[in-house]
Amino acid sequence: MISLADRHRIILEKIKEEGKVSVLDLCDMLDVSSVTIRKDLKQLEDKNLLFRVHGGATLNNPYTMDRPVNVKEKLQTEEKNKIGVAASALIEVNDSIIIASGTTVMALARHIKTKESLTVITSAIQVAEVLLQNPEIDVLMLGGLLRRSSSSVMGPYAEDILKDFFCSKLFVGVDGIDLENGLTTTNVLEAHLNRQMMNVSNKTIVLADSSKFGKRGFGKICDIDEIDQIITDDGVSPHTVEQLEAKGVKVIIV
């Protein structure tokens, strides 16, 4: 039988090679029970050598933290800009759309150059400010509790306003995309609002750079198979794209 020290060494070597390991794979590789593997993973996590997740472990911290919008907008700027361009190409004449909050959907707002009628509902103050510069765009700003870190509104009042509308597309940003745990954000009230936005939209399009994959926030928005499309950058792994498409999600890579 393989010793405890050797098991730990093998687990760490595998997770360094692949970035993530599953309990079932480790059971087969090491010929031990799932109880033993879970104990091993807990011991390694206690030593800060990995992070346990559902069904296995990962090398990268899967938990996201809330950061101010002025900090987020400086991260992955090139990727977000390309995603915004690709998303703007999906907007059609006479569309009625919802743009949620976040720096990636903000990139979308900057690239909307329509010369035709367009109605946009948004929870984000900065998105509304950008869109107001185009006279062809009618902007409906939701009201509610102002979330300072994202400069956007949330809460039951914003959700109630949405019940009076139905839109063709929702463009939403997220803090985490996990194939098992779905789409999440760091704030549960924002997650509830995003959910209501989905309920009144014909199609849900997620805008997220590749750093969001494998991450998770406190508030769950929905499961993966409840969305229609994801626009992301080429940093996403081909295996992840295959799994998304297997769940019926169209993936656009920029």
Rank of each mutant, 00 (worst) to 15 (best):
I2F: 14
D6A: 12
R7K: 13
K16A: 14
L30K: 12
L30F: 14
S33K: 12
K42P: 03
K42I: 09
E45G: 13
N48V: 09
L50R: 02
F51A: 04
R52G: 03
G56V: 09
P62D: 06
M65S: 15
E73M: 15
K74F: 06
K74P: 03
T77D: 06
G84E: 01
V85E: 12
V85L: 12
I97G: 10
I99A: 13
T103I: 08
A107W: 00
A107N: 07
I112D: 00
S117L: 09
A128S: 15
A128R: 11
Q133G: 15
Q133D: 14
G144A: 04
G144H: 07
S150F: 10
S150Y: 07
S151G: 00
G155N: 03
E159V: 07
I161D: 14
K163I: 02
C167I: 01
F171E: 07
L183S: 02
V188N: 08
V188D: 09
A191M: 06
K203C: 04
T204H: 06
A208Y: 01
S211N: 07
K212S: 01
F213V: 01
F218H: 02
I221K: 03
D223C: 13
Q229C: 13
I231G: 08
I231Q: 05
D233I: 00
V241D: 10
V241G: 11
G248R: 12
V249G: 12
V251C: 10
I253M: 03
